[in-house]
Nucleic acid binder design. Structure first.
Lengths: 110, 110
DNA sequence: AGGTTATTTAACCGATGAGTTATATTGAGT
DNA sequence: ACTCAATATAACTCATCGGTTAAATAACCT
């Protein structure tokens, strides 16, 4: 899968977004993460793998623990993609309609 | 599922992102969409349902056609969520590390 | 009413996702 | 070497996804 799809897919799960929110406060171990989410350790491990594969976190090692840390650069690509559509929601709807209708009439869509 | 998860899940598919890109040029019917994507009509219908359920498009009716139109306001919530993490990737990494370590040492995570 | 076109719905398929429990692994501490 | 604690892997279940083809619907045109 492409990187952007990986990123969006990783963000499409509320548990994973909550994990990222928690990691924004600082590194956390699997144990620290599984407790507040009332979830088994393996479930958290899987979520962390998804987030790591999407480049959104990295892991380190402290004794037996493997804390996870936020790596937010991957969000940049997602943010940039969305930003492409910003002019559409920034524009007044009437203006947008006019713009689209104009495009349509001029047969731009080959 | 919550709205934000729906939005991110809708964006996690490259075909759906391509459909949105196409719709940014103006409304398009199912037929017009299925042709360039070398995909059956029903497949496009399903993608449009996902996008519509996420609030990213709306449908209208012109004779037998049911053109889809971009409704980009739903992207706002996703963009806002990501924006929360902007300070993390804007910050220099060394500064971020220092910040996180400081948080950790002060035992903020209850 | 009958026929044509555009789209949707239904039923199915193989792959993936999110969770579980049970079992391995890894690293410290004794 | 033994044990304990933290995490990871394996194997499994159940649901959802993305696609297909075939059949049903909807709107238009004679």
């Amino acid at each position: 899968m492409d990187a952007l799809s990986n990123t969006f897919a990783a963000l499409a799960d509320p548990t994973r977004r909550a994990i990222l929110a928690r990691l924004a406060l600082g590194e956390a171990s699997v144990g620290e993460l599984s407790q507040p989410f009332a979830m088994s350790g393996p479930a958290v491990t899987k979520h962390l793998k998804v987030l790591e594969h999407a480049g959104l976190i990295s892991r380190s090692r402290i004794a037996q623990q493997r804390p996870a840390k936020l790596e937010p650069e991957a969000l940049k690509a997602a943010s940039d993609w969305i930003a492409e559509y910003r002019r559409f929601w920034d524009a007044k709807f009437d203006d947008l309609d006019a713009y689209l209708n104009d495009l349509q009439k001029n047969g731009e869509d080959k």
